[in-house]
Design a protein around this nucleic acid. Structure first.
Lengths: 230, 230
DNA sequence: ATTTTGATTAAGAATTTGTTAAATCCGCCT
DNA sequence: AGGCGGATTTAACAAATTCTTAATCAAAAT
């Protein structure tokens, strides 16, 4: 059950060579890159499809890159889209101006493709911010999402699939109570009609297995359960 | 009624001069900066107080800055905190490593203070945008809708589900009187036929639990209740 | 002064959650 | 196909907490 991937990038860059290089680099990393040579093309496109990230060259023939940023920031439906400026300009003033307009990052040419990718990932990760951390550590408790493994004080805690999924989902919603319904939906699927007490039983098993760390799974009466340290 | 400020920055930098300069620069912009010379000090501090942003120098005498980042990312309660690396290292490899660990930005020394501030703002702005956890603050009273938590002067106020829902609804209608019927409808459901006095009893409990902040729940004779400061 | 509306109190009813044990399901092996 | 073993679900009951009611008291309005 995926939440969408945040991979659609709009690139506005009038230099065909650079644009091509960037597009290639990002495409090879699985991003879906749409390259526009003119701001006007971009404006048309953005009305139809909302990208997850916009990379803007400051110097464009038809429009100033800053104006594109301002346009995006002023449009409520687009104002959340992260922006990375890409430019040959190196003056600090421009850099600051970029940030003032709400840029999420600012990369000056010539730049390393790897760094560009890293920065794109950083910005998107933050925009996405979900299941990026693969290992959670709390006290002596370790949850490795990728390996599907839980250890308490170094010793493995054997969880059943359901138990693990419940724990995982609780941790992903750290601090926030998760209703039984939401848990059932996320762990078993949206159409599954499970008996509420089923969740309780799993929680009970989970708590038993977590031993002294069971205290982190708190029940929030009337709302569900939550994973919390406090 | 404001929504929280995101101004607390933890800075880990062993060079006193640089640390001082950064702290001054950010403080002058209204940030609350805590400067740690050692990672260990930081670890101690972060258990007590959660910063809104962490700026980490990679080269530290006791710990590698990357390890601090890893530590933060693995702690579910701290994993959302943005990280900016601050360092003299300029190798691309290090930069990439930093981003892999989930850095939100990476600034190499020597850097312009203005740029630092701009980047800090960019990162916080983004973090802010993401964090839509609705938190209402009134005086020393805080209501976190998502976490289903209420605190008065930092101490948790334990509310029952009905009490919480009533408070929530009153606050959502800040300043406007809400009739008992509307409350019953919103808290219990439109078909629920409850006795009016029931609401009063819940209000009474709510007021008891809110202590000195109970004064904000006003009764509007002949109509209902409202949440108001005046 | 009387009436109306809200506050307070306490107790029983109702709801929600915890726990246990047994039943069922499911993949896997022979 | 049949049986095994762990995983999951159900069901029933116990325990804990919350909600509602009703009775009485206090305050405000007429």
């Amino acid at each position: 059950m995926d939440r969408g991937d945040f991979r659609k990038i709009f690139l506005i860059e009038d230099d065909e060579d650079i644009g091509f290089a960037v597009k290639e680099a990002l495409s090879s990393k699985g991003f879906e890159v749409y390259h526009f040579l003119r701001a006007t093309e971009f404006f048309r496109a953005v009305e139809k499809e909302k990208p997850d990230l916009v990379i803007i060259d400051i110097m464009l023939p038809d429009f100033d890159g800053f104006r594109i940023a301002r346009f995006l920031r002023n449009r409520p439906d687009l104002s959340e889209i992260p922006i990375i400026f890409l430019t040959a300009k190196i003056s600090e003033e421009d850099k600051l101006r970029g940030f003032e307009l709400g840029a999420d990052d600012y990369i000056t040419k010539p730049f390393s493709v790897k760094e560009l990718i890293a920065r794109v990932n950083a910005v998107l990760r933050r925009a996405n911010r979900e299941k990026n951390s693969k290992v959670f550590k709390v006290d002596g408790l370790e949850i490795d999402i990728e390996k599907v493994e839980v250890t308490a004080d170094g010793k493995e805690v054997k969880l059943t699939p359901s138990e693990f999924k419940i724990l995982k989902f609780l941790i992903e919603n750290y601090g926030k109570p998760v209703s039984r319904d939401k848990l059932i939906e996320k762990v078993w699927g949206y159409d599954h009609d499970a008996y509420d007490r089923t969740v309780d039983v799993h929680i009970k098993h989970l708590r038993d297995k977590l031993g002294k760390y069971s205290k982190y799974i708190k029940t929030v009466r009337g709302f569900g359960y939550k994973f919390d340290l406090t």
